[in-house]
Computed example of a mutant assay.
Amino acid sequence: MAHPPEASNQLAGLWLKNQRAAARKAAENAERRAAGESGVAYAGELSEAHRDALADLDPGWCPVWEIGWQRCYRLVLAHRKAGGSIPPGPGELIVQGEDLGAWAAAQRTAWDKLTPAQQWLLETTGIEPADDAAPAPSAPRSQDARWTANLAAARQFHAREGHLQVPRQHVETTTDGEEQTAVKLGAWLDNTRRRAAKLTADRRSALDDLGMRW
Rank of each mutant, 00 (worst) to 15 (best):
A27L: 08
A30G: 08
A30K: 04
A30L: 09
E31Y: 00
E31G: 12
E31W: 03
R33E: 00
R33P: 00
A34Y: 14
A34R: 15
A34L: 06
A35E: 14
S38M: 08
V40W: 04
A41L: 09
Y42T: 11
R51D: 05
R51N: 09
D52Q: 14
D52K: 13
A53I: 10
L54M: 15
L54W: 07
A55G: 03
L57Q: 14
L57G: 04
D58Y: 04
D58P: 04
P59N: 04
G60K: 00
C62Q: 00
E66C: 11
I67A: 08
I67D: 14
W69G: 12
W69I: 06
Q70N: 02
R71H: 12
R71W: 14
R74Q: 09
R74I: 02
R74W: 13
V76K: 11
V76C: 15
L77W: 13
L77I: 02
H79K: 13
H79C: 13
R80M: 09
R80N: 01
K81F: 15
K81P: 00
K81V: 13
K81E: 13
G83Y: 15
G84S: 05
P90F: 04
G91F: 15
E92I: 01
V95M: 06
G97S: 11
E98I: 01
G101P: 10
G101T: 02
